[in-house]
Design a protein around this nucleic acid. Structure first.
Length: 499
RNA sequence: GGCGGCAUACCCAAGUGGCAAGGGAGCGGUCUGCAAAACCGUUAUACAGCGGUUCAAAUCCGCUUGCCGCCUCCA
């Protein structure tokens, strides 16, 4: 089955046909850089990262552009509050954004343009719109006249009359229609300003994305993405400006991700349920957050809680643990090849899961990036593989058994990596996980190994009361000890994130 | 007020006409000094409710209820 993408513009899943064979041009609205990013931004970034990786996996060359809005009221307000230049604020949060995205393991876009570097391109669009009579100057501002663009409302599925009737926008004497939106704002004293044919000022928000997308991808381009909340007015306005100015369609497929909620409510500063990416990554592995995100369909809202993130984390650990065990125990014999029949004889169910995973995986992903279903298929293989390994106790696998286990592990890794998961060697993952988790308990590695050694001694002396006392002491710090033939291992349970 | 979305087991969640994926938690068992992990078994005659279409519906249509989002900056 060919790739199907749900297109907000038509409200339907459509077969994806790129404008240029073998190439996908994708623009995703980035952030306004005035504060740290929260987990809603993380979801959006992860969703489009997975889309990007999947398209690349299908063989497309992906041109991915994501902008920064680096001039805006909120940036100016913060700059004013701190008594610094707005560029200082923008620079600080662009850097923070990059740190967060790197920490999340996201592929960098091909291009990350800044709004303020594209004022001439924006002015050119405004010029064309004014020339065509679709925009007008009023006072010190230039507005887009929604009545002059017949398609206005087509993305968000509203018509102009309804919008005007229910409009909650401020009445502005300058506007001909309450829904008209600003393209160019006359600057107030002390604000950053650029020269223009309509007087000194700065660009409106929507014009940036139209200008940068058109510059780097041309119009029309293939995919335009962003959060659901951008559908109206931002994307609606982008379409209006760009199509009116260029006389062509703007973007073919409009893709919008759902929100992250906390306790079933949208995250917002006023509700005090605002969680930054940094807050989460302090105690949660980035791939856990990724698995959490892709366990849900990208268009559905997702509720973030300690429980649901913890579930994702345990799932990820099991995935890594199974892969590690399979790799280790098939290391010797896993590379020799055997006929399919010989492998199948080892474990019919595992063999069938292994054979069917590629088909099912691509079927799910091709169906509007159904990562949740794809993850389900991956866990089905993981479960069968783990069960197979357990049949052999702790022994290493030989011959066709080793080969079957090795191939299953390879398949898990390969398919997970298409979604940006299982990117680490298991050993490195667990090492990182131990360090990260231990840090949240306030116990040092030395203290812990001392306590484990003490307990080991107590156990050797059959002083189980003392051994259990130490175990309990550590459990209070969320550290769980696991005795195994290879010695005592430990794991740390999740530190609550939500207060 | 206008527009849109969602409702599947204890929890999370996939499934858009033909035997209800997957994960987590629970319970019983194997293993273990005890635990934990892992494995085995088990947990929806059923998909908010009512009505309709169909040989066949969680899936399509209508109505009802509940929750959420957008309409103002917002991923």
């Amino acid at each position: 089955m060919a790739l199907q993408i749900y297109n907000t513009l038509t409200g339907k899943k459509e077969e994806f046909v790129p404008l240029e064979p073998g190439r996908v041009k994708m623009y995703v609205c980035g952030i306004t850089v005035y504060d740290l990013c929260h987990i809603g931004h993380a979801r959006s970034a992860i969703v489009f990262d997975v889309i990007c990786r999947f398209l690349a996996d299908l063989g497309y060359q992906v041109s991915y552009v994501r902008n920064f809005t680096d001039i805006d009221d909120k940036i100016l307000r913060r700059a004013g509050a701190e008594g610094v230049d707005y560029r200082t604020i923008a620079k600080r949060f662009i850097q923070a954004f990059h740190e967060d995205m790197d920490a999340l393991g996201l592929l960098p876009p091909a291009m990350e343009p800044l709004a303020t570097d594209h004022i001439p391109e924006m002015l050119e669009i405004v010029r064309r719109l004014v020339e065509k009579g679709v925009a007008y100057k009023a006072g010190t501002d230039v507005y887009f006249s929604v009545e002059r663009f017949p398609g206005y409302g087509k993305l968000s599925g509203r018509d102009l009359e309804d919008m005007v009737a229910g409009a909650r926008v401020e009445v502005d004497e300058n506007k001909r229609n309450p829904m008209d939106f600003v393209l160019w704002k006359g600057s107030k004293p002390g604000e950053p300003t650029w020269e223009s044919p309509w007087g000194p000022g700065r660009p409106g928000w929507h014009i940036e994305c139209s200008a940068m997308a058109a510059k780097y991808l041309g119009a029309p381009f293939d995919i335009h993405g962003g959060g659901k909340d951008l559908v109206f007015p931002h994307h609606e306005n982008e379409i209006a400006q760009a199509e009116a100015a260029f006389g062509t369609s703007f973007a073919r497929y409009w893709v919008h991700n759902g929100f992250v909620n906390i306790n079933n409510e949208k995250m917002s500063k006023s509700l005090g349920n605002f969680i930054t990416i940094r807050d989460v990554l302090e105690s949660v592995h980035p791939e856990s957050l990724r698995l959490f995100v892709i366990s849900k369909h990208y268009r559905s809202p997702v509720d973030f809680s300690d429980d649901t993130v913890g579930e994702a984390e345990r799932g990820l650990e099991r995935l890594y643990a199974t892969v590690e065990a399979a790799q280790e125990r098939s290391a010797k014999d896993g590379h020799a090849d055997y006929p399919d029949d010989a492998l199948k004889k080892q474990d019919v169910e595992l063999y069938e899961k292994l054979e069917s995973l590629p088909v099912l995986f691509y079927e799910a992903m091709n169906n509007d990036f159904n990562t949740a279903q794809a993850v389900g298929y991956i866990f089905a293989l993981q479960r069968n593989l783990q069960r197979f390994l357990d049949k052999f106790g702790r022994k290493n696998l030989k011959g066709p058994s080793a080969r079957l286990a090795a191939r299953s592990a390879d398949s898990l890794v390969k398919h997970c990596r298409v979604m940006g998961l299982l990117m680490l060697e298991p050993e490195a993952f667990f090492e990182g996980q131990r360090k990260l988790k231990l840090k949240t308990t306030g116990i040092s590695e030395e203290e812990l190994s001392d306590l484990i050694a003490q307990r080991h001694k107590a156990r050797a002396e059959k002083n189980f009361a003392e051994a259990d006392r130490i175990r309990k002491q550590l459990e209070e710090k969320r550290i769980q000890l696991e005795d195994s033939p290879e010695g005592t291992k430990w794991r740390v349970s999740l530190q609550p994130i939500i207060a």
